[in-house]
């Protein structure tokens, strides 16, 4: 056991830790907006809106995240000239951009399923009552549907956030130096394989259970009217 490897590289590991946190936060923030749009499109009665949203959701839920990451990061090279022509190549060349792009869409696909289920679960009579009271669709969503859907969706959505946090470890394979990426670099310098991986595994455990704790507190807060 050479535990000093961990202390010697603590600063580097901390940097990786922040990259993991940032990746998770950006993916969740962008993914949330996309997920809400996808959920509303999926619930639309119009095929023209519903089908594209369902196709995107099916693709991102039906293929491995690793395939999606490679498809965007390595695959974009095949369209280099086309992307260059519209000025997007400088983004798709960056592993970090590809990572956020794919993680956001991936979590959006899974979350939209949770949200559309939650929106459908809101009591129909309340929506009818809202309509009768003369609410516009926007007000109906803002005041009646979304606040209740949030409570229904919360458990599923918080699990999804934890899943996507753990899934960020895959971006190390496309050269992003997140916690897992940094661990790989430290190992290739020091050969302290299990020491570093166990330390990193413990760090992920701490992140996961901190999130579990915070989310369950928030859940209690969301449902305080029921207590």
């Amino acid at each position: 056991m050479s535990l000093h490897v961990i202390w010697d590289n603590a600063e580097w590991l901390l940097e990786g830790f922040w990259v993991t946190v940032q990746l998770t936060a950006s993916a969740v923030a962008i993914g949330l907006i996309v997920a809400l749009i996808l959920a509303l499109l999926t619930l639309s009665t119009h095929r023209f809106y519903r089908w594209p949203a369902e196709a995107i959701t099916f693709f991102f839920r039906g293929t491995p995240l690793l395939v999606q990451l490679f498809l965007v990061y390595h695959g974009s090279g095949q369209f280099r000239h086309e992307l260059d022509a519209i000025g997007l190549w400088s983004y798709f060349r960056e592993a970090y951009f590809c990572a956020v792009f794919v993680l956001a869409l991936n979590t959006a696909a899974y979350s939209s399923e949770i949200f559309s289920g939650a929106i459908k679960a809101v009591d129909k009579h309340q929506i009818e009552a809202g309509r009768v009271a003369g609410m516009t669709d926007f007000i109906l969503y803002r005041r009646i549907i979304l606040p209740q859907a949030l409570r229904i969706a919360w458990t599923g959505y918080s699990n999804e956030i934890i899943f996507i946090m753990q899934a960020t470890s895959l971006v190390s394979i496309i050269t992003v130096l997140d916690l897992t990426g940094v661990a790989g670099r430290i190992i290739s310098k020091t050969f302290a394989i299990y020491e570093v991986y166990i330390a990193v595994a413990l760090l992920y455990l701490v992140i996961t259970y901190t999130m579990v704790f915070i989310f369950s507190r928030l859940e209690k807060r969301l449902n305080r009217h029921k207590a």
Partner: peptide
């Protein structure tokens, strides 16, 4: 523990 650690790790 298993559910708290990424599969890749």
């Amino acid at each position: 523990t298993i559910r708290g650690i990424p599969e890749l790790i």
